[in-house]
Design a protein around this nucleic acid. Sequence first.
DNA 1: ATTGCTGAGTCTGTCAACCAGACTTAGCAT
DNA 2: ATGCTAAGTCTGGTTGACAGACTCAGCAAT
Lengths: 158, 158
Amino acid sequence: MGRPWILDYDSANCAIGAAVGIIGERWTFLVLREAFNGVRRFGDIQRRTAMPRQVLSDRLARLVREDLLRKVPYQDEGKRTRYEYRLSSKGLDLYPVLVALMQWGNQHAVGPAGPQVQLQHRDCGEPVRLQLSCEAGHILDSARDVTPVPGPGARKTA
Amino acid sequence: MGRPWILDYDSANCAIGAAVGIIGERWTFLVLREAFNGVRRFGDIQRRTAMPRQVLSDRLARLVREDLLRKVPYQDEGKRTRYEYRLSSKGLDLYPVLVALMQWGNQHAVGPAGPQVQLQHRDCGEPVRLQLSCEAGHILDSARDVTPVPGPGARKTA
DNA sequence: ATTGCTGAGTCTGTCAACCAGACTTAGCAT
DNA sequence: ATGCTAAGTCTGGTTGACAGACTCAGCAAT
């Protein structure tokens, strides 16, 4: 492979670094998982993830601040107004990240019982999967079929 | 949306939870990013990510233990034998996760300069992207087109 | 053989994050 | 008033992150 070209470039403004700066904490992924499963209330999330309340409080605040979740009021019969947490469109765009984690987990980190949740196309009911493809329409099976090249935002290191 | 069915199910053996348990730490993603970019040596990774040496040491050990990276000996001219860290096939399978993070970061978390790295199909040079599709071949544009249903590993809560 | 160099990794003290369990708060109901 | 409940905060102890100095192994030059 030789010395990778990337060593000449700065990694400071990398998109992965930026993304991980926002959502890279352990519990944050679980909060997002619940959000995508339609679990929206503090107590439900806390029970399902078993995370400390304080941490959940922090993470929700951060996700709201970053505009991945929105606080929406609701009111149950005979109860006072409360807030639930719903994905914004910026949050919904994270779906591929969660699906990718789920696919990998199902391949490599889960017991023989099989997947706990399956994803179906809402319109036709067929199973959903994530695929790497190129704009010419070829399907890529492995990271080895991809060549990273410098993009417009690339900057050489000093 | 109504009360989500998932509240009746246990979240303990969720694939996302399992995946995050292995790779869910902030710095781990950056280590993997470097690995996919072909950066394999302790010092190079440390310089590019600016992470504390101790943390890098821990994370590499963990990734090796989990069989995402392999330690491979190499020897430079007039230097002693050292080890570099290469992705195993289990590690390579994580590629979609990194690509998904990168796509999201480019959409939502990066300045106007544009992407720092672009991905090309090795065989045809066209840009690579990640897509949700169903087995009938439909392309899905949003998380809203997906319906999660209980899978074979689903278990009701007590 | 000693000295120095280098890349990889460890040790130490400090400081921030996490955690469990108890406490607080706001609004509704009795 | 009193109680109830979901959401969120406070407290003190424990774990993890961090920066900077240190160690260690092997090669090379003296």
